[in-house]
């Protein structure tokens, strides 16, 4: 049986609209999503106040970290709620593809991710004096992609969580190893072979490399494009894997 392609797109947008509707009734969460990366950047600038050159290095790197973490948490809680509410079971009993549900989340939170990236970029470049050698719009794009990667990681891992406790436990399990190996503390080039290999399998490494490159290298280099492509590939892989792990049947 073939279904017209427009139907799926409408389901995606209906889902995005519903998620945005939920957010509209919960402006506190929206404010947190938008403000949190900014507050963290201000704090970071303050921490590095007496250490010249540190913010210039770490600022862009953390640009690849904060949006990812914030969106990761939002996404894992949102999907878990969908499961606990019973609405996930209901949707899976309706004529809806699992991937379309996740894409609906991506569209809705994508809107939020772009807004978040815009505000954070404006603050970092305009107010906190973060120097960006490459085009600023590219930093904005990288931050938005990064947020969406966090969203996809959250959607994927929450499929494995059975309770709120488990979902929260996945944050240190999934995010902290990436945080340690992403190049923030030691550049990947300086890591030993195995560690380097491990770092290379982690999506956050590419997100941090991309934002660092935009800050230090003028113009669009092929290395930068490779990093952005890697982030996008991880994003898509997480979504497709996430759609497969949304289980319809319970034991």
């Amino acid at each position: 049986m073939t279904v017209p392609a427009g139907r799926e797109a409408r389901t995606v947008f209906a889902t995005a609209r519903r998620v945005l509707g939920q957010l509209a009734h919960d402006l506190g969460t929206v404010a947190l999503i938008l403000a949190l990366p900014c507050v963290l950047l201000i704090l970071l600038r303050w921490v590095f106040h007496g250490v010249p050159g540190s913010f210039a290095r770490a600022g862009p790197q953390l640009f690849g970290v904060f949006p990812l973490i914030v969106m990761y948490l939002v996404a894992s809680v949102a999907t878990l709620r969908e499961r606990v509410n019973g609405t996930l079971d209901r949707l899976l009993c309706l004529p809806m593809r699992r991937l379309d549900l996740l894409l609906g989340y991506v569209v809705a939170f994508g809107v939020l991710a772009v807004a978040q990236a815009g505000i954070a970029t404006g603050l970092a470049v305009g107010v906190l004096g973060m120097r960006v050698a490459g085009p600023v719009w590219l930093l904005l794009l990288a931050a938005a992609l990064d947020a969406l990667l966090g969203l996809a990681l959250g959607l994927l891992t929450s499929a494995f969580a059975r309770t709120e406790f488990q979902a929260v436990q996945y944050l240190p399990a999934v995010i902290l190893p990436q945080f340690l190996l992403c190049g923030l503390f030691v550049p990947p080039e300086a890591m030993d072979g195995t560690l380097r290999l491990l770092a290379d399998t982690m999506p956050m490494t590419y997100a941090v490399q991309a934002t660092s490159r935009i800050a230090t290298e003028p113009g669009i280099t092929s290395a930068l494009l490779a990093d952005l492509a890697a982030v996008t590939a991880f994003l898509l892989a997480c979504l497709i894997l996430g759609a497969f792990t949304l289980r319809r049947r319970t034991p």
Binding site: A14, T15, R18, N85, R90, C93, M96
Partner: peptide
């Protein structure tokens, strides 16, 4: 097949109409 589970499977944070509109859209 229309299925209603024992626990109310609707979104608590949007209105009754928004819930119905959404599920109607999913039904095409």
């Amino acid at each position: 097949v229309g299925y209603v589970s024992q626990a109310p499977s609707v979104y608590p944070d949007v209105t009754v109409r928004e819930n119905l509109r959404y599920f109607a859209s999913v039904l095409g």
